[in-house]
Design a protein around this nucleic acid. Sequence first.
DNA 1: CGGAATCTTGAAAATGGTCAAGATCAGTGG
DNA 2: CCACTGATCTTGACCATTTTCAAGATTCCG
Lengths: 263, 263
Amino acid sequence: MLSRKTEFARLGTKLRDVGGLTLSCAHCHLRSRCLPSGLSLDELGEMREVAPRQRRVARGEALYQAGDSCHSIYAVRLGFFKSYVVTQDGRSQITGFQMAGDILGLDGADTGTHTQSVVALEVSDVCVFSYAKLETAAGNLQALQHKVRCVMSREIAREHAMMVLLGTARAEERVAAFLLNLSERYGELGYSEGEFNLRMTREEMGSYLGLKLETVSRMFSHFQECGLITAQHRYVHILDRPKLARLAGRNVLPDIHETRMSQ
Amino acid sequence: MLSRKTEFARLGTKLRDVGGLTLSCAHCHLRSRCLPSGLSLDELGEMREVAPRQRRVARGEALYQAGDSCHSIYAVRLGFFKSYVVTQDGRSQITGFQMAGDILGLDGADTGTHTQSVVALEVSDVCVFSYAKLETAAGNLQALQHKVRCVMSREIAREHAMMVLLGTARAEERVAAFLLNLSERYGELGYSEGEFNLRMTREEMGSYLGLKLETVSRMFSHFQECGLITAQHRYVHILDRPKLARLAGRNVLPDIHETRMSQ
DNA sequence: CGGAATCTTGAAAATGGTCAAGATCAGTGG
DNA sequence: CCACTGATCTTGACCATTTTCAAGATTCCG
């Protein structure tokens, strides 16, 4: 419970200092896991040409929606998003959860129209990179073009891992893999790997994992009975990571991480 | 039965005329659905710089394997491939089937190492585009760079559709959607939409669809009982497309098509 | 022609979904 | 600060779907 507060406090301190301003990639604390990762100092300077703008998204607000014209790539600076697709017959499924350092907006570059929707699950900030500027900067910033391909390729690999999870794993494995993946991603951002607050409902987890919310809830109870975790609604504490990893069948490939630019 | 022969004959005529030669994109009959689609005549000429080479792959042979270093993109000219990933704990799942006009090799551009394996299910020919040449050609061929991003973005959309299928559809829907998708793709290539030979086993279909081979087999029998198709092992005849589409719940989005460059 | 691979089908078992009821939590307005 | 309302979560009982196991038929390929 204490650590729950500290986590919130930490988020709180980062919530300040926002505006619709142009940002400098050279001074961003997330640059190592964002689009400009791996660029030289000179190249970082040239990123001014690409001039990412900042945008704040309220909880529940859409960053973009399926059908919107597609003219930007977004880098999450702060907050938490879900992305989802809706089929013709009205079914929908969550395709990913994105947090600081993750890249959004890669879908629909071919049709010029987004194929998925992205909604903030809490107040969030993103950097906006216009496709047009990215393309004209190509000549000077070969490395940047290359990086964009890398993010996309990484996203493809992540989705392959997701397809395996959906195609072959049972409920227990899916939920275990999901919790471990979230945990690792929080860890990479400097938060606690061992305890964290879920930003999504059981239903949203289920939608992502191809399960009903009741099944997700049962798995949480099951893991608690086994002494693998404690869970009080959204607050999760991982007690036995190795056993959880064994349950996940090592589905917790690096690939399953969200699209990200790091190295 | 007759049409089965004609289909083979058709394939037969295309099997001639192969070599390790450099090819001209400007004269390729597949250019409208390949990497250079949408390029001007001038730009098509410049494709000589990129100098795709041709490679023949025997039935059962790997085009590349997970772990191989990643230095080329491949365009299928002729034949049929399966791509699959293998998890750490040894499970594997097919991630796609590729035929003429489809693009391969997009995985692993970030790590420099392929994350999936690709194997030919029949004698196949591919064009090989070296990444290095594609990158240096960037300056002159902006449009080509853009096209590469389009293929990747299209692949991401396809995988989203696949995730929905795996996450929410029942066996009947999955198999129906699969048959319709194959049918449409054959149709686009000028083959019959109504009857065709499957290139893969029941088990391979199952692996792709997250089902066991027995379930796939049962669905085939089921569809025959309903008068939707006739199936004699690999040979399939679609009798009632509308009803099949209704079963598929219109999961047969354009997205579910394989990665492809057309328009 | 013969052996291996592939496919079909049945019956039993396991897994997850559906439906329903009640508990808990978060946010609102008094 | 508290009660209230709607959203979210838990749990149980039952049901539908898919898997598993097994046996036999068919096809492919050398």
